[in-house]
Design a protein around this nucleic acid. Structure first.
Lengths: 148, 148
DNA sequence: GAATATAGTCAAGCAGCTTGACCAAATCGT
DNA sequence: ACGATTTGGTCAAGCTGCTTGACTATATTC
């Protein structure tokens, strides 16, 4: 594959990712959740299963603890998460989603599904699944970083 | 496709895009181009063929004219682009890549090709091309926005 | 040819991140 | 068991990249 093709592939990937972020965000807003930025969605993704500490979150987002702490503080203020004492570690605090936070997470899932459905309309369901499995097989495990 | 699958696909896409950005940037740095941020790469992509005005660039990047103007000023200072009078419009100025800017663009292409090659090692060349064509067919035309 | 729109810059302000310093609780090493 | 070190978290200050608002100069419209 030539360099120019690699560049075209990269551009397509990055443009698609940017648009997806935009659409999910718009969908979340349209469902009535305001005062959130796309970055919060990535935080929710980490908090969703069982909560996480600020340090976990910082690692997941690829930012400093301080930045993650500020982000949590903002989400607490807006009612999406709450801090609970950590069961095993008196220094740490477990950040968990509130019911509002869960509702917002479901809204994000619906928005993502809407966006993905638009692609499926173009590609077809089978091609869509192929795209899915390919992307998953090359997706990294590390922190989720902004596309730029 | 279920909502949770759509979310998993989205996460994979965004994580991959973030990693790609990171790798291209690291590759560019490794090739000796410093003082650049990933956003500059997207500016280069718009400037590459024949140059562009600040307003064009702003639309392409999805930011204000002022932000684009500051970015251009920075690139001028660092020697990657230069401002020329616009041939048809005395108000406007055409921003074009310098030789250094072109060299940096080529370095970015090489870095992108390296990153893509790593995926081809996992997927195989054929699967890679399939991924490419599918991504291109769903990639949007609008402004390139950050993934969050 | 006056009214309006467009290209670009200057200036000020703000939001989100960073570095640096610090405290309290946990863990390590002897 | 206990001092030394590491780890989780916050506070404070500062920087950077973006925004909004105001303005000038050239183009376009009627």
């Amino acid at each position: 594959m030539q360099n120019s093709e690699a560049m075209a592939l990269s551009a397509a990937l990055l443009a698609t990712a940017g648009e997806l972020t935009q659409r999910i965000h718009e969908g979340v807003v349209a469902r009535g959740f305001e005062g959130l930025r796309p970055a919060h969605g990535f935080a929710f993704a980490r908090l969703a299963p069982d909560g996480a500490t600020v340090t976990d979150l910082a690692a997941h987002l690829g930012v400093t603890k301080q930045a993650a702490s500020q982000l949590v503080e903002e989400l607490v203020r807006k009612g999406y998460v709450e801090r609970r004492p950590h069961p095993d570690d008196a220094r740490a605090r477990l950040v968990v989603l509130t019911e509002l936070g869960w509702a917002c997470t479901r809204a994000a899932e619906e928005s993502a599904a809407d966006a993905v459905r638009a692609w499926a309309d173009v590609l077809g369901e089978g091609e869509m699944r192929a795209l899915y499995t390919r992307l998953v097989s090359i997706a990294p495990y590390g922190p989720i970083r902004p596309a730029w």
